[in-house]
Amino acid sequence: MLRPFTLHRPETAEDACALLATLGEDAAPYAGGTELLLLMKLGLLRPPHLVDVKRIAGFGDIADGTRLTIGATVTHRTLERSPLVRARCPLVASVARHVANVRVRNVGTVGGNLAFADPHSDLATLFLTLDATVELVSPRGRRELSLAEFVRGPWETARRPDELLASVRLSPWPTGTGAAYVKFGVHERPTLGIAVALRLDGAGERARVADARVAIGCVSPRPMRVEAAEARVNGVAEAELGDVTGAMADAAAESVDPADDLHGSAEYKREMVAVFVRRALRVAVARARGAELSASFPHAVVA
């Protein structure tokens, strides 16, 4: 049961930000409400004002360009089915298909997911490998931050109270990139999310890994790129990948900062990072070669 609040439905970002500026702490941006209403029902939040961001012009758009711009109020479902997203960032569409359940996907938004900064976000982890930036609007204008700067910690972002997340911009990978996102866990939200993307430079035997990107979520206070792991495979010949995979997985496991919680012990999570980095790498390499491994693991999703 919800406590009463006033619902504002501005149609421009300016009006919305003005409202947020005036109402201050008393207002919360509201998109799909899949997180917000849940917290309000549990009595953990009681904002007297909600500012609906779904009617703001442009917030629901997906736009092409050098980068792919995804409006904040685009739902997971739209992301999953958008021909543009499927063409430019196919992995984003397939990861979106595995976020939560169909009802949450129908209503929950990309902006809500990122602005909430739950450490168990699939999108945030994946987006790190796409050099994502977020666009914030406020009465002072617009600013753009990298996603890494934006997400500061569990449920904590660089967003100021009068700012709104307008969109997220992704840099699609160069053609020839093979990528995989693997998530694992028995709980409602993932215990672990790993994104791996890379290219193979050169043909046949002489092909070498280039542009490797590894991001890991859920097992640190915030999702992170793991350069140490990327460095282990960049420039390595495909034939020799087997020799460095272990070192890469270990580097990843050392970089994360898990805690003991319902999802498991820190020790277990660290070990699972190593396991799934290896697995994700295998799938990504195969995809870079144009092949598809039939990889299926219990309690895991390979997107």
Partner: peptide
């Protein structure tokens, strides 16, 4: 469940399934 997990409250809004337990009527 009242938390969007179980689906007992599912209704279709313009053909799309939503959790009516966590969805503003407006």
């Amino acid at each position: 469940c009242d938390t969007q997990v179980c689906g007992a409250c599912t209704v279709l809004v313009d053909g799309q399934a939503v959790s009516a337990c966590t969805y503003l009527a407006v």
